[in-house]
Design a binder for these strands. Sequence first.
DNA 1: TGCTAGGTATACTGATCTGTGAACACACTC
DNA 2: GAGTGTGTTCACAGATCAGTATACCTAGCA
Lengths: 190, 190
Amino acid sequence: MQDTRPLTPAGERIVAAAEELFYDRGITAVGVDLIAEHSGVTKRTLYNQFGSKDRLVAAYLAARDRRWQSLVRATVDACDDPVEAVTAPFEALRVWSGTNARGCAFINALAELPDASHPAYVIAADQKRWLVNLFEELATAAGCPAPGALATQLLVLHEGVLATQPLPLDTLPGGVELARSLVRAALARP
Amino acid sequence: MQDTRPLTPAGERIVAAAEELFYDRGITAVGVDLIAEHSGVTKRTLYNQFGSKDRLVAAYLAARDRRWQSLVRATVDACDDPVEAVTAPFEALRVWSGTNARGCAFINALAELPDASHPAYVIAADQKRWLVNLFEELATAAGCPAPGALATQLLVLHEGVLATQPLPLDTLPGGVELARSLVRAALARP
DNA sequence: TGCTAGGTATACTGATCTGTGAACACACTC
DNA sequence: GAGTGTGTTCACAGATCAGTATACCTAGCA
């Protein structure tokens, strides 16, 4: 949006380090010095590339969003059955959060950032809008009579699976099965 | 758990201010000086009462948990129909997050606190465990043949409704209807 | 040859944050 | 009347954090 020119090699390393550190430890808990150190870069270079920590946070969320969207797209495209494709994002979610599950990076970012004018709010809202639109497209392609309603249901379920990930609970949610039953119910309804 | 003696009047005011400020602006973004100022209390008194900011965070989450549980209990007890009582926590949720909806305070707290040894983790896990156990009790009382499975489904849905609250999306989720359909499906199954 | 862009190295500023020390005041109770 | 618990006032230590200043280096390119 705000910056179309590609990142320099140092800029790429900075974003990669920010993705790891911000997600694992939280945005406010991680300082720019730590990110500069982990990316093998001077703090001066970090500020030459991004200007401020807020802009770096926005770049981190945007980069994570791009990675997530490409994974979902690939998982959806690998499905032959259009009905199965509706729940493909839940399969992607299982792959995505295999190792470290600290919940949704966008929800977590909003939790830390007090003011709604932060660019992270726009990125987070766009990310969820993209997902609910994708659900609606897939539901329409699967022949669902009310794709909008099913899409919002699947979004809520999706966020619920993400939100319960960091909790140390004994019983795992398992969102794919519940998503499939929602799709079945939506398709069976006249 | 760690402290059974009741809070002093100043301690009550501190926790009340912490509830408002921590939830609205985030834990790391709010300093102890601001909490002391908002509660009309010296910082010295704050530290005499709670010892550290981490302990105050734990007290804030515990107090919020108590308030939430009492609201849910009251809403459940007001239900005559045992089937309707299963989805009563979702009605309570609608009342609970009427004014300011910044998502789940416990999920948000975990997002900000990097180390899993923080007392907030135990409180958050206990809170979700309490809710899933309540769902299971209510499902059993309603005659559900598989109350455990329904309970985890309802928990995931519950967290999804909470997580999507702070997002500036046009379409509102509306969790009560989806919860009712889940309960219907679980009761209809043999 | 000289210019420019990307990056390094290092020190620094100013603000903010958690937490402490020490002396004092008031109310209640034994 | 002495002691104890609760709270105030104010100053301050120590650490961390975002962001800046200055000088230097190197590779590509005209």
